[in-house]
């Protein structure tokens, strides 16, 4: 099953078939989600209108983690089965995941200012997401640091696997550190059981964001494969020309 899609042409055929569906689902789901989030859902009795930030913040936090898991799995597949398309997908997903992390951090701090009275606290969850962002940056930087692209994608795949092993450890240690250094001075607002009027837009947005991720990964992977094809064709032509002029 996996090996079928090691062939870029076959992968592209599948990707092109999926893309229109995923795109329309993204538009519908995020459109409906935004409508519910900004129009049809009630303001929170405690947080007021700022609760609406959550509809972007929470799905992007999920996506930030999901994208890293996706990269780790794709990297493992790429390393173990020497699967070229898996590496392309991992590289395509990295900047998208990093963007979701930034969105999560930014919306979180926008929400934190009116709610907690500060843009940033060294809360365990915020700190873990920040570290996740650093891991994304390292992965992207390593993938682009080599003149030989194949070297970069394999090295960054190893890094992604090590990072995936390390991520739960970092999460645990940050939780520990937080309880050690910061006795609950910042009251985290206890999430009451989420009412369905808020849960529905949240889930719509979450699925919509996932579809958006699929669309962006396909578009970026397609561009990367096209880029490699152009490079291959170009070097083939140069070889042909030098062979001709030599003869």
């Amino acid at each position: 099953m996996l090996h079928r899609f090691a062939n870029p042409t076959r992968f592209l055929r599948l990707a092109n078939a999926v893309l229109p569906w995923a795109t329309s689902l993204t538009v519908i789901l995020i459109g409906a989600g935004l409508y519910f989030a900004f129009g049809a859902s009630p303001a929170d009795y405690q947080q007021g209108e700022t609760v609406r930030i959550m509809y972007v913040h929470v799905p992007s936090a999920w996506m930030a983690m999901f994208a890293y898991a996706f990269i780790a799995v794709a990297s493992a597949v790429g390393l173990i089965w020497k699967h070229p398309v898996a590496h392309v997908c991992a590289l395509a997903a990295a900047p998208i995941g990093a963007c979701f992390t930034v969105i999560c951090l930014t919306t979180g701090s926008l929400w934190g200012k009116p709610m907690w009275g500060t843009w940033w606290v060294w809360d365990a969850r915020l700190t873990s997401v920040l570290v996740l962002f650093f891991l994304y940056l390292g992965f992207i930087a390593l993938a682009n640091a080599f003149d030989d692209a194949a070297r970069g994608e394999k090295a960054s795949a190893i890094l992604a696997l090590v990072g995936a092993v390390n991520l739960p450890i970092i999460k645990f240690s940050v939780d520990w550190w937080n309880t050690l250094h910061q006795p609950a001075s910042v009251t985290k607002i206890g999430m009451p059981a989420v009412h369905s009027s808020m849960l529905i837009p949240l889930l719509l947005m979450a699925v919509g964001f996932t579809m958006l991720f699929v669309v962006l990964v396909i578009v970026r992977a397609r561009a990367e494969l096209a880029d490699r094809r152009i490079n291959a064709l170009r070097s083939a032509r140069i070889h042909a020309e030098t062979a001709q002029s030599g003869a």
């Binding site: 570290v131 650093f134 930087a141 890094l159 390390n166």
Partner: peptide
């Protein structure tokens, strides 16, 4: 690049 790769991974050691 090295600092970017290594520093986030050794945060637990620091903690």
């Amino acid at each position: 690049l090295l600092s970017l790769l290594v520093l986030p991974l050794v945060i637990p050691v620091l903690i």
